[in-house]
């Protein structure tokens, strides 16, 4: 279990680095896919609600520290993302979920909630309107991120069919 968690931590560090440095290359119309959300949802479906909340917090905090933008904002939004994604956790149907469109649906659902929380706070005191931020940026990011979830979903599909 410790080895598994150590692996998660290592992958999290790598993904934070990738998200910070490389994902901007995939930006379309200012919208960047959030692979950290996919990772948190994956952890929620694999480990459950409680670990996903903690991992979401840790990964979000790591991202905040790496970007130095708004300390605590990603930690909060990813904690909530992990918590809600954890509702879809089922020990027996774990691979079934990860290898099917359900994974996409959970990512979309968790991403929408996460972006809503994120922009509720981020749009305060700024000229960006809350609804505009949620619908134009939040939803777009959620859909774009869901699109990128196809990759791990196909990977899990191949793995499950072997």
């Amino acid at each position: 279990m410790i080895a598994r968690y150590f692996t998660y931590a290592l992958i999290s560090l790598i993904l934070v680095a990738v998200q910070t440095k490389l994902m901007r290359l995939l930006t379309v119309e200012g919208i960047t896919p959030d692979i950290l959300t996919i990772w948190v949802v994956f952890l929620a479906l694999r480990e459950g609600q409680l670990p996903a909340s903690v991992w979401g917090f840790c990964i979000g905090l790591l991202f905040d520290l790496a970007t130095g933008n708004f300390l605590g904002l990603s930690a909060l939004s990813k904690t909530i993302c992990g918590f809600f994604a954890g509702y879809f956790y089922s020990e027996t149907k774990m691979m079934l979920t990860l290898a099917s469109y359900r994974f996409l649906m959970v990512v979309l659902f968790a991403s929408v909630i996460q972006n809503t929380v994120y922009f509720i706070i981020y749009s305060q005191g700024s000229e960006i309107g809350l609804l505009r931020a949620i619908f134009q940026v939040g939803l777009a990011t959620a859909f774009y991120t869901t699109t990128w979830t196809l990759l791990p979903m196909f990977a899990f599909t191949r793995r499950s069919t072997r």
Binding site: D64, G72, A75, F83, I121, Y122, G125
Partner: peptide, 25 residues
Amino acid sequence: LVLTFLIVISLVLLSLNDNNQVRAI
């Protein structure tokens, strides 16, 4: 309980910022 605890920590971290958003909140 864990969610509440993590949210509280996040809010404390948020309050450490000094930007327009935090001032508005």
